[in-house]
């Protein structure tokens, strides 16, 4: 099977049952994406497929041979952190760190959804909702943090969102 991951071509001979998560971790040594529950309940395995966040544990690798897959390894490097990685460090948005790659990939996808104007369950209006902290909490509810670093995770995401969209930041205040 052929894959495009973080812009690089990869090849692997894998069992047809292999999930995208197991392909990344067990066959391509991309162990940034984490296996928490393996059932789509915790979000630790979140990656971006064609720019959209999904649970890599709940999809088969074979179904993603034509897709652009981005994992935490493709977002930044230790020398050049992605803005969300830098913000998670600055705001102490983790304790053990196990959920963090999923949190960050999820936040990247989530901020893109916000930019597209997608509403959420807590949006007062379906049309052009304000991006409040309640919106961050609701939109990130698919990513659990057993250390409960949630307040700092919200702060980290808030900082990056405000830097991206200064006009919207003012509106939310």
């Amino acid at each position: 099977m052929h894959f495009t991951i973080n812009g690089q071509p990869h090849q692997a001979e894998v069992d047809i049952r292999t999930t995208l998560l197991d392909l990344l971790r067990e066959h391509l040594s991309l162990t940034g994406s984490k296996k928490g529950c393996d059932h789509g309940q915790c979000g630790a395995c979140t990656v971006l497929v064609n720019g959209r966040r999904i649970n890599s544990c709940l999809t088969l690798a074979v179904m993603h041979q034509d897709d652009e897959i981005v994992t935490i390894e493709g977002l930044g490097t230790p020398e050049k952190l992605h803005p969300l990685q830098a913000a998670f460090v600055k705001h102490d948005g983790f304790q053990c760190g196990y959920c963090t790659p999923g949190q960050i990939c999820s936040a990247v996808g989530m901020l893109d959804e916000v930019e597209k104007g997608w509403p959420s369950h807590v949006s007062a209006t379906l049309d052009d909702p304000d991006f409040t902290d309640d919106e961050i909490r609701e939109r990130m509810s698919g990513n659990l943090c057993r250390c409960s670093a949630y307040p700092n995770i919200v702060d980290a995401i808030r900082e990056v969102a405000d830097a991206k969209q200064p006009a919207q930041a003012e509106a939310a205040e």
């Binding site: 979000g43 966040r53 649970n55 999820s106 959420s120 379906l126 698919g142």
Partner: peptide, 19 residues
């Protein structure tokens, strides 16, 4: 069809709704 948008947004998580 606001009821449909609202129902969808009340279900699952962002990641699951994308898939």
């Amino acid at each position: 069809y606001e009821v449909l948008s609202r129902a969808l947004l009340a279900g699952a998580s962002g990641q699951l709704r994308n898939k």
